[in-house]
């Protein structure tokens, strides 16, 4: 199955709108993590608007597919997608990080409809996804569990504890993405603590590991199809991405990991995303 030209066009347009949302909400908040949100947004858009079985009117529907944002700091991307999908009004995005907002600085399931678990402290989402995938196996429930991991996050030991668990229990109902933009807060991952050879690492942990372009909807889609075809083991899509993707002066700049644009930068950025 391939993405239709209409669907492809729709995804591109949705991603463009979500990119604008990410930049607007973080500048309004005066803080947040736009860089890593822009690098993973195309994958989130594909999942929520083309792939996952979910119903924004019933966020707790038992048979929904699950998405866990393990790299919780990229929640502006998740909030943009959830609001555009209809989980809450788009106007709520303006309240990000403010007192009494439903949109906490890092995801909190008790505050935000559609957020599957609270996160922010890195390394924990894959274990949680495993738990949900195990429960689905026990209950013979046919759901899919998707996890978004950061690349810097893969320096956490817990990720690899969890990777062993997914393989041990043959969790083919689980598919992870690594947002491999190659930058972490303090600089290039290869200069700090390299993950390479990342594909071989996942393979040696018992996973099906494929490399995709994380900004190509066709390749993201192919990765998802590959995950569906893979039986008896979990799949990871190592997504080559660009931090700050879509805004020329933000791309590959570590400083936009945890810094919002100034109002002047925002208007320049929004022009590029018209």
């Amino acid at each position: 199955m391939k993405l239709s030209p209409e669907k492809l066009k729709e995804l591109k347009e949705t991603a463009r709108i979500c990119r604008r949302d990410i930049l607007r909400m973080t500048t309004l908040a005066g803080s947040g993590h736009p860089g890593g949100s822009l690098s993973c947004i195309d994958i989130l858009v594909t999942l929520f608007f083309a792939r996952m079985r979910h119903d924004p009117r019933q966020p707790k529907w038992e048979d929904r597919d699950r998405f866990f944002l393990s790299k919780g700091h990229s929640c502006p991307a998740l909030y943009a997608v959830l609001s555009r999908a209809g989980y809450f009004p788009v106007e709520e995005l303006d309240t990000l990080r403010k007192l009494n907002s439903i949109l906490q600085g890092h995801p909190d399931m008790l505050y935000t409809p559609g957020v599957e678990v609270s996160s922010g402290s890195l390394g924990q989402g894959l274990s949680i996804g495993n738990g949900v995938a195990l429960a689905a196996k026990v209950d013979h429930r046919n759901i899919k569990v998707y996890i978004m991991l950061g690349d810097g996050e893969c320096q956490e030991g817990m990720v690899w504890e969890a990777a062993m668990t997914s393989a041990q229990h043959k969790l083919d109902n689980l598919c992870a993405f690594v947002d491999y933009n190659r930058l972490q807060i303090d600089g290039w991952i290869d200069d700090i603590k390299s993950l390479e050879p990342l594909q071989l690492k996942w393979e040696s942990f018992g996973w099906k590991a494929i490399i995709i372009d994380g900004h190509s909807f066709e390749e993201i889609w192919q990765g998802l199809m590959e995950a569906d075809r893979t039986k008896g083991k979990p799949t990871v899509c190592i997504a080559r991405t660009v931090k700050g993707k879509g805004v020329s002066f933000m791309e590959n700049q570590a400083k936009y990991h945890g810094m919002a644009l100034t109002p002047e930068e925002l208007s320049r950025a929004l022009k590029e995303l018209e």
Partner: peptide, 17 residues
């Protein structure tokens, strides 16, 4: 296995389900 952090995360997922 000898993975206490994974133990807790997995339990959280099972509770969510």
């Amino acid at each position: 296995g000898v993975s206490e952090q994974d133990l807790i995360g997995t339990a959280a997922g099972l509770a969510l389900a």
